[in-house]
Nucleic acid binder design. Sequence first.
DNA 1: GAGAGTAGGTTTCCTTCGGAGACTATAGGA
DNA 2: TCCTATAGTCTCCGAAGGAAACCTACTCTC
Lengths: 124, 124
Amino acid sequence: MTEIPFDPYLKACPSRTVLDRVADRWTVLVVGALADGPQRFSALAQRVDGVSQKMLTRTLRGLERDGLVQRTVHAEVPPRVEYELTAAGHDVLGPLQALERWTLDHSADVLAAREAYDTAHATS
Amino acid sequence: MTEIPFDPYLKACPSRTVLDRVADRWTVLVVGALADGPQRFSALAQRVDGVSQKMLTRTLRGLERDGLVQRTVHAEVPPRVEYELTAAGHDVLGPLQALERWTLDHSADVLAAREAYDTAHATS
DNA sequence: GAGAGTAGGTTTCCTTCGGAGACTATAGGA
DNA sequence: TCCTATAGTCTCCGAAGGAAACCTACTCTC
């Protein structure tokens, strides 16, 4: 088989577009929110505070397109749509939750560093 | 001590801004490029193909402000500036490289899923 | 049978972000 | 005197993201 060395450091490499999907703030939060199991659109909108409907829709569509999320429409009234992680989606959960955990563990440090930096670089 | 439960799922939580820094495509690539050791600005610009000078500068400044990168100016002519990861920067390297590795390992699957999706949803 | 409610979007408008490319400061060398 | 090299900054413009109104389909209430 042909050896295609994916390299996201190259602008033109398709893997760059994959990285773009995954290294995104809404992706991290939405996939993280789906870790507990299937969720409805409105439940996700509540859980991921501050996401606009447009961006939630776009993020979910993107994840569905990339095979990370399964979208299921239940033909009821009012309609019910459920999103859940696919096998590939569970795969990416590991790295993304690692990122999320790092954020939790180091937020205090980072915020302190910011304050120190801003103090040191204040327009005197 | 006061218990401040950081939660990036909340819009107003400061940890959201930390996640924004770290869940960013340029951050992933720049920190990844610094994994091999100190790098000069121009070396980073070459390694991270497609990054504009503006975004490279902004990303590095942000990482410096957050205490993840150390910036060292050598007073020479022409000037020489070196960037290297701090201890905290090495900490975040783990999750970020995990993401990068996932991207490498799953790009083919994701690209295939995209093609399948686009075929299925083509405007007929 | 007119109007309201509900879920999951889509559309519109406006602000902000990101990219391309020109411009800057500095000092040694031709 | 002019050129070069480095690490940026500045300016302009198009694209992305956020807020909020609108849409659809059906069902329930009055």
